[in-house]
């Protein structure tokens, strides 16, 4: 048996010539070039975003006041407000959350915990990935046909519930994918431990895997919802209105109200020729952005809240 030290004395392995060319200065230079390049990428991304935000803030901040937040849209810019779009957005998002969370998380659990690695799972997985990439206007067309027309007796046409169901379809693939990622991040040893203690699959999922995956699932869900909150195209397709001068009653009746949402109101105002409406749009964009940031903030809070302390 040759020990490593003896191997060096072997003629064939003798390091007679030094064939390494370390050239450290050059390698460090490449390091700094790449460091700078990635730093530049961050700066470009952030500066575009900040220019956008500053632009909007300059135009819109002066518009935001109590009257703006509590008035209905109007033909006269001075009287116009965003009360009904704000309320519409909240209605729609709450409903989307109520519909999409149980369905999306349920589907994710089924795919990841019950039929993982089967042929069926592969087929469904490919389809869900495709669905997540479908342009949102296609969901609008689907919603128009299915929820507005076919399910008219249930939805009463172009109503809050139709809009919410359409957006639910839109965010479901994202929630399912996020749920699966979160479940996949739970170590297999946790499942094994559960099964070895005589737990059934559902008990393992409910008591061990799901609690550990919950922070990730919540984060994914809220990020999916924040995509939904900004969607305009599918809601225009199903025929959300731009002038709504009432608030839906806070009851089941409310589900059958016609509605508007912030992105649609913004879209409407921006496409008008008068400068005053453009300022109103900027104001509405700020409000939408605040809602969005609030949702992301909740996501972060929930993640930290449910994060299992080690």
């Amino acid at each position: 048996m040759t020990l490593p030290s003896q191997a060096f004395q072997d003629d064939s392995l003798d390091f007679k010539e030094l064939k390494f060319f370390p050239d450290l200065p050059k390698r460090y230079k490449i390091d700094s070039v790449f460091k700078f390049a990635s730093w530049a990428a961050v700066v470009i991304a952030l500066s575009v975003l900040s220019i956008l935000l500053i632009e909007v803030a300059i135009d819109g901040l002066s518009m935001i006041n109590w009257q703006f937040l509590t008035s209905y849209p109007s033909r006269k810019p001075a009287d116009a407000g965003i009360l009904s779009p704000i309320v519409g957005t909240i209605w729609v998002m709450v409903l989307v959350a109520l519909f999409s969370f149980p369905i999306g998380v349920g589907a994710g659990i089924f795919l990841e915990e019950f039929i993982a690695d089967s042929f069926l799972e592969n087929v469904i997985e490919v389809n869900i990935a495709n669905l997540a990439a479908v342009p949102s206007i296609i969901y609008g067309l689907l919603g128009l046909q299915v929820f507005v027309r076919w399910l008219f007796p249930l939805t009463q046409g172009r109503t809050i519930i139709s809009g919410a169901l359409t957006l639910t379809l839109l965010v479901l693939p994202i929630i399912i994918i996020a749920t699966r990622e979160a479940l996949r991040a739970v170590p297999g040893s946790m499942r094994q431990a559960g099964f070895a203690l005589g737990a059934t699959r559902w008990q393992v999922v409910r008591d061990i895997v799901f609690p550990q995956a919950l922070p990730g699932i919540l984060t994914g869900t809220i990020l999916a919802l924040s995509r939904g909150i900004g969607e305009t195209a599918p809601l225009i397709t199903i025929g959300a209105l731009t002038y709504v001068a009432f608030l839906p009653p806070l009851s089941l009746e409310g589900l059958h109200s016609t509605f508007s949402v912030l992105p649609i109101q913004i879209f409407n105002w921006v496409s008008r020729p008068q400068q005053e409406f453009h300022l109103l749009a900027a104001g509405a964009i700020i409000v939408l952005m605040v809602l969005l940031l609030a949702m992301n903030g909740i996501a972060i809070y929930l993640r930290n809240r449910f994060q299992i302390t080690r």
């Binding site: 170590p187 946790m190 094994q192 431990a193 070895a196 203690l197």
Partner: peptide, 19 residues
């Protein structure tokens, strides 16, 4: 098997307590 695993317990290579 669920019933069997209650009677035949198992301890794994890497300690895996639940969080």
């Amino acid at each position: 098997p669920v019933d069997l695993r209650r009677r035949i317990g198992m301890v794994f290579q890497k300690p895996n307590p639940f969080p």
